[in-house]
Simulated assay, not measured.
Amino acid sequence: MSFSIQGKTAIITGAATGIGHAIARHFLDEGANVVFSDQNEKRLKSNCDDLASSENCRLFVGDLREKLAVANLLSTTLDAFDRVDVLINATRSFMLTDPLDAADDSVETLLDQNLNVALRTSQAVARRMILQAEQEDEKPQEAGTIINISSIAAHRTQPQLMGFSISNAALEQMTRSMGVALAPHAIRVNAIAVGSLMSGTLRDTIAEHPEYRDSIIQGTPLHRIGTASEVAELAQFLASGASAFMTGQVMTLDGGRSVLDTVQRPAH
């Protein structure tokens, strides 16, 4: 069983910071060609400054809500590496929702950013993967892999997170649907649903509300907060031949938080 991604070409969106950046760095370290994609040019260039001389790395700046940006992302990848083998949709936007405010457009905004961007990018990349497979002398066992980064919020109910939860639930259904649709083309589609990870945003929240850290740990059976590097390692598994018989699946990485029932039965 091989976890190698050596020589594969991967596009990773949301790669300026957080999970996307950790995955992109990890894939680069594991010998993949990596396109770091993000719409925040300043942050992307700042966090990737040390990679400027790498032959196996390219930076792409663009708002993937625009169809032209998706096309340009794919062109940048092909110009640099001639092909694409892996797409990781790690663009994640977060905002609170007021479920009773008719003027609150957060649900619409998050569906566009967390679902539609992943859908359009996946469709464009999948078409290229299919074309690559058709150009091979023999039909490959695997034409490509697509990995979506979701959240356990998709299955938990917190009204103020309604927009975020809905967009992630939709992303997971997209994963299952595209997993089936692309299976005849030897393209696998899976997702990783993450719990609380120690990111810049979470650090800021904990700094302002120290009790929040204890709340997370108490609600997590493994009694700690996860790291982006752990997501990166799971993404490598899903991009490698070790997961060759997996598609349409959502793997949960949350320290057991999503399986914990916080309402305990009284002791007798």
Rank of each mutant, 00 (worst) to 15 (best):
M1T: 15
Q6P: 13
G7A: 10
K8G: 13
T9C: 01
I11T: 05
A24H: 07
A24R: 07
R25L: 12
R25N: 07
H26M: 05
H26F: 09
F27S: 00
N33L: 14
N33F: 09
S37K: 02
S37G: 01
E41Y: 11
R43Y: 09
N47R: 10
D49S: 07
A52D: 11
N56Y: 02
N56W: 05
L59M: 14
F60G: 01
L68R: 06
V70A: 01
A71P: 01
N72M: 07
L74R: 05
L74W: 02
F81G: 02
I88L: 12
A90L: 13
M95L: 06
L96I: 14
D98I: 08
D98K: 08
P99F: 12
A102Q: 06
A103D: 12
D105I: 03
V107R: 00
L110H: 00
L111Q: 08
V117G: 13
A118Q: 00
L119M: 15
S122A: 11
E138L: 06
K139Y: 04
P140N: 08
Q141P: 11
A143I: 12
T145M: 10
I149R: 04
I149N: 00
A153W: 04
A154M: 03
Q158R: 13
Q160E: 04
Q160N: 03
M162L: 15
G163V: 10
I166T: 11
N168H: 04
A170M: 04
M178T: 04
L182V: 11
A186Y: 03
R188V: 10
R188Q: 08
V189T: 02
N190Q: 14
A193K: 03
S196N: 13
T201N: 09
L202T: 00
D204T: 13
A207D: 04
H209Q: 15
P210C: 11
E211H: 06
D214V: 12
I217S: 07
P221V: 03
A228N: 07
A228V: 15
S229F: 10
S229Q: 10
E230V: 10
V231H: 14
V231N: 10
S240E: 14
S243P: 12
G248I: 06
G248A: 00
M251T: 10
L253A: 13
L253C: 12
G255P: 00
V259E: 10
V263G: 11
V263T: 15
Q264W: 14
